[in-house]
Design a protein around this nucleic acid. Structure first.
Lengths: 146, 146
DNA sequence: TGATTAAAAGATATTAATGTCTTTTATTGT
DNA sequence: ACAATAAAAGACATTAATATCTTTTAATCA
């Protein structure tokens, strides 16, 4: 496993807001949680973080809910990973060896470092908007419930 | 984070047994845990699994401890990952999207699949013996305590 | 046989991630 | 102001990974 459930919830949640927001201004937690089969209150906490970070907007009260903003589509997956609190992710030696770094590399350091770089690049260069643009029709199925 | 602590303990533990075993026939849990700064009893449980899988040998009683066997150096890192119980690892979509597979791929499916493949290949083709052979002198520092 | 040693096994504790439930706060319309 | 709505916030429960402690089992030696 690479990403936390929280990350998956955040990503699918934002994507759902993007999609459902095309036909209405506000998308409510109830609907998102129901359609994506995500625990409602837990999703609420995850979304709260994204609101604090400015990735999506929210409004309380009647006709309230969540909506996308200028930042939403520009947000990279790596940012989303950070916001949903992956503790260190790729920071230390994935083999969990000590004192492993470029100067004193473990035997697999360079190979792993290459993969890590590719992975990091992919996550940094891919934005939420990219995911929307690519192949929307099939993709809609991907974020929905099983 | 990619691998569990258990995996790291297992790998460092086996490597320590390999190294320390050069000068004595049996390496004891006490010594391994102390030198690698790993919780003793927890390491014991991890090592127990490896013994059950035949990756290392163990002997109870005085002059007992752990020792390597024919299988030790041939064991791949992927096998070690499995033995230390990563639940699913790379099995489903890392973005945690549903219904994501080769036929109905999520937008990042192919890029991620490529990285996953590289990673899997690396873990499958690298054995514990490989880690020992590569650059032992510096490497010894890597598995030891901070 | 009995004492000692060390792994194996079992029971329990801690911690972080996840999940659930209740209360509070902000917004809207009457 | 009041009722209704929906997110925010807080309290608590569950689960899995990790950690600790105790008891049991197997081996050695005197």
């Amino acid at each position: 496993m690479i990403f936390s459930k929280s990350f998956g919830y955040a990503l699918r949640g934002v994507l759902y807001i993007e999609m459902a927001g095309e036909s209405k201004s506000m998308v409510q937690l109830d609907e998102i949680a129901r359609e994506l089969a995500i625990p409602r209150h837990f999703l609420g906490k995850v979304m709260k973080k994204l609101v604090k970070e400015g990735v999506v907007n929210s409004l309380k009260g009647p006709f309230g809910g969540f909506s996308i903003n200028e930042k939403t589509k520009e947000t990279s997956l790596l940012q989303l990973v950070d916001m949903t609190g992956e503790p260190e992710e790729f920071s230390s030696c994935v083999l969990r060896l000590r004192k492993c770094n470029a100067k004193n590399p473990c035997p697999m350091h360079h190979q792993i470092e290459s993969l890590r770089q590719q992975w990091q690049t992919l996550l940094t260069s891919t934005t939420i908007g990219d995911l929307i643009r690519k192949d929307m029709p099939d993709f809609i199925k991907s974020i929905a419930v099983i």
